[in-house]
């Protein structure tokens, strides 16, 4: 898994671009004037994926109560009906144009002993606020390699942590106090990105004409890329299929 993310990272690093686009997470930035293409599609799997196991949060009774009746399932591989894959990042990894740096603050919540959202995409230097919404202490430990790694607790009632990531990097984030809490901070230079929902669907829009490499990245299965050429205002269908194994 780690080698995959490093490979992706290298791709991200050599990617530079100037185009603007929208993503399905967060508010869509305004479209640039003129013709713009769209890439959309679905991420699915073949084979048998690992089971989504219920997480037993017994050591933190607060969180057990918050999820009473519907225990949280593991989020490393989240599947939907029709073999779709959730939490897959799809983004322009090469040939990017028209991206602008994002300035709006993104928010990460720690709620019910979960990171919300599980996958958080942001651009370099985009402000990030981390909140603890639980009545007990949490600890945020981004296992960064290119960016400075840090590890801090946030007790109940402590102010939000204001931070940002300077370098593009896919950063696993864990809570040391609650071992099951895992999330990702995906720092990408492009603003053309999307994270799949439960239906596995994604849309990258506002792409000026040009030749692009589109990459889909899943935390356990790694990355796949496809080359796509956009000429004018058209919608190009692109689908990704990951091969899943149960273990």
């Amino acid at each position: 898994m780690r080698t995959h993310s490093i490979a992706v990272l290298a791709t991200v690093l050599i990617t530079g671009g100037l185009a603007r686009s929208a993503s399905i997470v967060g508010a869509a930035p305004p479209r640039p004037p003129g013709a713009a293409g769209t890439i959309s599609g679905k991420v699915t799997y073949t084979g048998t994926p690992p089971k989504m196991k219920p997480i037993d949060m017994a050591k933190e009774p607060n969180c057990v109560t918050q999820h009473a009746g519907a225990p949280v399932l593991t989020e490393n591989v989240v599947t939907g009906p029709g073999n779709t894959l959730r939490w897959v990042l799809v983004y322009i990894s090469a040939g990017d144009q028209g991206s602008t740096p994002a300035t709006e603050t993104v928010r990460l919540d720690q709620k019910g002993c979960q990171y919300i959202p599980h996958v958080l995409v942001l651009q370099p230097n985009q402000p990030l606020d981390i909140y603890n919404d639980d009545p007990h202490s949490h600890n945020i430990h981004p296992l960064a390699k290119l960016n400075p790694e840090w590890n801090r607790s946030q007790p109940a009632g402590a102010p939000p942590i204001h931070t940002k990531w300077e370098q593009p990097e896919f950063i696993p984030v864990k809570c040391n106090v609650h071992p099951w809490m895992h999330g990702w901070h995906l720092v990408v230079t492009t603003s053309h990105y999307a994270v799949t929902g439960e239906d596995g669907a994604f849309t990258l829009s506002g792409l000026p004409a040009g030749k692009y490499t589109v990459t889909a990245w899943q935390e356990q299965f790694g990355a796949q890329s496809q080359d796509v050429t956009i000429s004018g205002s058209e919608t190009k269908p692109v689908n990704f299929v990951f091969k899943a194994t149960p273990y």
Partner: peptide, 8 residues
């Protein structure tokens, strides 16, 4: 060992 997939 992988906590994300509960392989403690």
């Amino acid at each position: 060992m992988n906590e994300a997939s509960q392989n403690f």
